[in-house]
Design a protein around this nucleic acid. Structure first.
Lengths: 229, 229
DNA sequence: GCGGGAATTATGCAACCGTATAATCCAACT
DNA sequence: AGTTGGATTATACGGTTGCATAATTCCCGC
């Protein structure tokens, strides 16, 4: 073989493309979330993240300082996204307190909140949440915000109750929703499409002593069979 | 400085210690679980696992063939341990169906089942569960076994119900327990010691329409107020 | 038009990962 | 007592990781 001396095209430098800071941060966060959701934390390497975001790894350091910082930002984005979605669903609900509660519960038990990707992503971050005080307080804030909203909706039902009761009920309702969300996300195909929403409404209703099933039709696409596209 | 020519003790080989296959497998699995629980999946490297188990990394390959195989065995051990614990608690319960259900529920919501370590461990495996068909079927089996036991306990209450009702109730009760277990494990210090057990009993009772709170004293260490240090 | 400087890319590095393979040890069998 | 073979340890290797630094590119105020 002759020596490696052929013209050998220069390794063609990646084109320089400039973009706004916001776009770059979003792209990196989304890329990281995709990778963690698909292949677990181990798949989210700086090179893979940068490749999916369409940039070179150096930008992670440039915009976030370190990979750990990107992880924190990514977790915050995940939590905010989920709570925001619940609030949005609530915004376009009626006046009836029971109906509002039903809509809120149902929105947490169907896509895009109920999603294998989200569950895997959440689990992928959990150990960091436990170890990092900043992330732990972040989790606590998000959790309490969700639970407090739930408690407000419950208290709006204006039934007679003791002070501690609504707290216990909110904790319990939050737990049912979390549990259904989790198992539904992991074993999604084991449940019929609208089944988890119905079970959630029935259980929450049983815990607080109000019938929420009558609002089952108020939640979209849950008519006779509920086969979403 | 003189040349590096001092007697320089030979790098002292690790003493050869022989042990049974069972002990070695257990030690490796336990070491892996400790590491995943403490520092997430990324902390469980073959070298760290072997070091904690008091052996050299080669033994992992010798006994499990590969690290992935050790992960599978470790996950199986975790799941079996949790379900076994529930069964054990049930074994030393009375005859009253409601009491048996109460004991079963309560045992899942207090240590050692309710444990930050277990939750972190479980989360650390989740993404592998979603990706690995063998682990997914393993998870499904464990989940259904637990849920079916719950359903049996519910049906033993001999109330009148429709066929699908007990399934829905079992799914719902399982979800409450899972949700309480999860949040209690992550935010353990946010809840009073016996609080989660009480909420669990009250919620499960509400869902199936039976009062389980009267058995609150049947579960250990839950007397008048239950304020632990 | 033309420097200055931030944004982006490219390169290099030390550490670590999982695994394959070789070397060593010791108990049990003959 | 000698030998054989599984259990255990040690070493080596290719690949990957996160990060630091150097080299480019091009927008923007002058």
């Amino acid at each position: 073989m002759p020596a490696a001396d052929q013209p050998q095209a220069p390794p063609e430098r990646r084109p320089y493309i400039r973009d706004t800071e916001e776009n770059r941060r979003e792209a990196l966060i989304e890329a990281m979330q995709d990778l963690v959701a698909e292949g677990g934390p181990q798949a989210a390497t700086v090179r893979a993240i940068a490749a999916r975001a369409g940039v070179t790894p150096g930008l992670i350091r440039h915009y976030f300082g370190s990979k750990d910082e990107l992880v924190r930002a990514s977790y915050t984005a995940l939590m905010d996204g989920m709570t925001d979605h619940g609030a949005a669903a609530l915004a376009q609900a009626g006046e009836d307190p029971a109906e509002r509660l039903a809509v809120f519960v149902a929105s947490s038990l169907r896509p895009p909140v109920l999603d294998p990707r989200a569950a895997g992503l959440w689990a992928g971050y959990l150990h960091r949440v436990q170890g990092d005080p900043a992330l732990l307080s972040q989790h606590e804030t998000s959790y309490l915000r969700y639970r407090d909203r739930l408690q407000d909706l419950i208290e709006a039902l204006s039934r007679d109750r003791t002070p501690g009761q609504s707290r216990r009920e909110a904790i319990a309702c939050n737990a049912v929703i979390d549990g259904l969300w989790l198992e539904g996300s992991v074993l999604g195909e084991r449940f019929a499409p609208g089944e988890l929403v119905r079970i959630g409404l029935r259980s929450v209703g049983a815990i607080i002593g109000v019938d929420l099933m009558q609002y089952g039709t108020a939640v979209p696409e849950l008519g006779p069979e509920g086969k979403a596209p």
